[in-house]
């Protein structure tokens, strides 16, 4: 995969060209030209520069774009961290001294969830900006940016989900294995784990499990607590918890569905660079054709033709009228 760098000779040649132009210019200028010429041309160039800078300001949504890119890079790191933690958790012999790592994990999942939704919001900002953009090139640019960002977000989301699912699966299988050996301790062990899970509002990993294990856990918990009031309070708390989980899941669900809709055309003809370029050219050509048509319509404007004919006949008739009357 050989390459050749021609930048140096190019810059050398460019400098030479600029220099020779200057020398050439200096030689040829009379005093007046030397003094006045540049001055008279300066306003022009200043103006030109002015429009250039006006052109050069990046659109407002660039901030959102950069923000999203930053979020994405942070997300990547966080997800890596999380899977690392997962791995550590899995290799550890028991689940007894959980607190620190679990809390860390919990915090990470929460942060990741938040990052996803804020990233999504930023994408929405860019998308809205794209809709308001007047120039076609700018609009295209913004649309492309939205596409790129959403597919990156989706990729990360997928990675996050698979890592979560794997972790959950492995934990479960390990517990299965454990259960064989520690049938007696089952309830105790379960209580410990469920407690720690309940304390984290991470909807990801416990959601499905929660539903499967819920009734049984509740039973065991209920057996331990006699006080009806406390029971009520617990139930309410739990309901709130469940409501929270459902809410966040459906939120995320919505986000990912939306993202998937945005990037669905991977692998189709719409994802071909040459096809898209051809398409824009076809559009330009169509526009040109429409313009031409409009032009021809304008030229063959019947009304105007009619008016002209009528006006001519009126003039002629009035002329005749005058002629014959006098």
């Amino acid at each position: 995969m050989a390459t050749r760098n021609l930048t140096e000779p190019f810059i050398l040649m460019r400098n030479n060209a600029l220099q020779s132009k200057h020398i050439y210019a200096e030689q040829n200028l009379s005093d007046r030209m030397a003094l006045v010429g540049p001055d008279s041309s300066r306003p022009d160039s200043v103006e030109l520069k002015g429009t250039n800078t006006n052109d050069g300001t990046p659109p407002a949504w660039t901030d959102a774009l950069e923000e999203t890119q930053y979020i994405l890079s942070r997300l990547r790191i966080k997800i890596d961290n999380l899977s690392e933690l997962h791995a550590k958790q899995l290799t550890r012999p028991t689940l007894d001294d959980t607190s620190q790592e679990e809390r860390q994990m919990e915090q990470l999942t929460r942060e990741i969830g938040r990052a996803f939704s804020s990233g999504y919001q930023q994408v929405q900002i860019v998308k809205a900006a794209a809709r308001h953009e007047t120039r076609p090139a700018e609009r295209q640019l913004a649309n492309s940016a939205v596409l790129a960002l959403s597919s990156a977000l989706q990729d990360l989301g997928l990675r996050y989900r698979t890592s979560q699912a794997n972790y959950l699966q492995q934990i479960n299988s390990r517990e299965e294995r454990n259960r064989q050996y520690f049938t007696e301790d089952e309830t105790l062990l379960r209580n410990v784990t469920t407690d720690s899970w309940l304390s984290e509002p991470s909807y990801e990993e416990n959601s499905s499990d929660y539903w499967q294990q819920g009734p049984r856990q509740q039973e065991s918990v209920l057996l331990q607590i006699d006080d009806p009031e406390q029971r009520m309070r617990l139930a309410e708390e739990r309901e709130k918890e469940v409501g929270h989980i459902v809410q966040s899941i459906s939120d995320l669900n919505h986000i990912f569905k939306d993202l998937a809709n945005m990037v669905q055309d991977q692998g189709t003809i719409l994802d071909r660079i040459d096809y898209n370029i051809e398409q824009t050219q076809v559009q330009v050509y169509e526009g040109y054709k429409q313009l031409k048509k409009a032009d021809s319509y304008q030229k063959a404007n019947r009304k105007l033709y009619c008016i002209m004919v009528l006006a001519a006949s009126i003039i002629l008739l009035s002329f005749l009228f005058i002629l014959f009357k006098t």
Binding site: S144, A148, S151, G267
Partner: peptide, 12 residues
């Protein structure tokens, strides 16, 4: 593909 190259920040 276009979606691949978009990820490289080539948007137009």
């Amino acid at each position: 593909s276009q979606s691949e190259i978009l990820l490289k920040e080539v948007y137009l």
